[in-house]
Design a protein around this nucleic acid. Structure first.
Lengths: 198, 198
DNA sequence: ACGGTAACACTAACGGTTAGGTTTTTGGAA
DNA sequence: TTCCAAAAACCTAACCGTTAGTGTTACCGT
């Protein structure tokens, strides 16, 4: 029933992937703004409406698999070692994300993103959505019924760290610098267990 | 020469204002997405191209005068009393801005903004631009040649405070809560004069 | 084999935005 | 006053992302 075992789903996934691959290739070849949705659809040999049935917008084509960064962040919160404090766990994950953006294979894509205001704006609002998820995960971690202002603030600061680091001359050092500040902010929070022994 | 006496500029400003007023009125009457640029232009009795020569986008019509929030923030940094510390000055200004959004007269506009994803996204990226200006102002205040990561981080946190407070149940309390965290972050920054006696 | 439904296609449009080129208004100089 | 250059506004026609409406095909469970 739910496991409607797979040719249909495989074909759907294949179509989606073909669209994403084609789009990214064209964007890198000719530049993001120089390529229209109609170009992508034609080159991928699908209808324009099919493109939009797989991706919510032109920008979403670029951030195809990056939507799972949200999952990695919430996972860093809920799935960390039992004794690992929250902030260092988040720092590790942000470090990994920043490193990934600078990696050989993905670097041209990120340069393209940095060069396009539309893409930068899309990424920022994507990160804001992610921050809300992180806030919820933090709240759950501390048995709060819902995300408090402190949760949401820490989450926001964490995605800020990513954003600030990416545009810094030394991204890794910037992550550490921002996280020193986040750690300090965290310590004046009701959630910080500074009064609880072990 | 530069003072090319004012009728031209006054007329231009008047046109701009008429467009902005008409747009806001229509948006509030019929809803933001239900009103097209062509409607605004017709009602303001100008051409569509004239609208776009005064405003960069449809969203910009709503944030007409809010561009000067940027000025108020940088002013809070550079124009504060000689002995007033940086963070409290910024907190005062954010408090004022949040209060302004909840004011009787502007409340419907802000409700409209909250109801429209396009407007919320536009506002967020506007605030990010503002954060960069604030970062530059902070850097100048500490005789830095350019904005460091710490400057940019504090600036980002400050605009986060605004954003988080606006969506909190008690905005004023939220500003204070977030600023307690910002203050803590500020104190672990190289710029904090904790080692300098008076 | 069959009926339902998910995926895809096609056409046509909508709405924000811009390019092109023209007309009107304005400020200042002859 | 008269005339000119520049600014402001206009008009038309499109471009491009996006969506609605309406089929058509391919797959899945029965």
């Amino acid at each position: 029933m739910t496991v409607s075992s797979g040719r249909r789903e495989r074909k759907k996934a294949a179509t989606r992937q073909k669209i994403a691959d084609t789009a990214l290739r064209l964007f890198l070849e000719r530049g993001y703004e120089a390529v229209g949705i109609r170009d992508v659809a034609a080159e991928a040999d699908v209808a324009v409406t099919t493109v939009f049935s797989h991706f919510a917008s032109k920008e979403a084509l670029v951030f195809e698999q990056d939507e799972d960064f949200e999952h990695r962040l919430t996972q860093a919160v809920t799935g960390r070692a039992p004794d690992e404090p929250l902030i260092p766990a988040l720092r590790r994950e942000i470090h990994a994300m920043v490193r990934h953006c600078a990696a050989e294979s993905t670097a041209p894509t990120w340069q393209m993103i940095d060069a396009s205001p539309a893409l930068r704006q899309y990424e920022e609002s994507m990160r804001l959505r992610h921050a809300e998820s992180v806030a919820t995960a933090i709240a759950a971690e501390f048995d709060l019924p819902q995300a408090t202002t402190a949760c949401r603030t820490i989450a926001r600061f964490v995605v800020d760290a990513y954003s600030l680091a990416r545009s810094a001359p030394d991204p890794a050092a910037a992550v550490d610098e921002v996280f020193r500040m986040i750690e300090a902010a965290w310590e004046v929070t009701p959630m910080h267990p500074r009064l609880r022994p072990s």
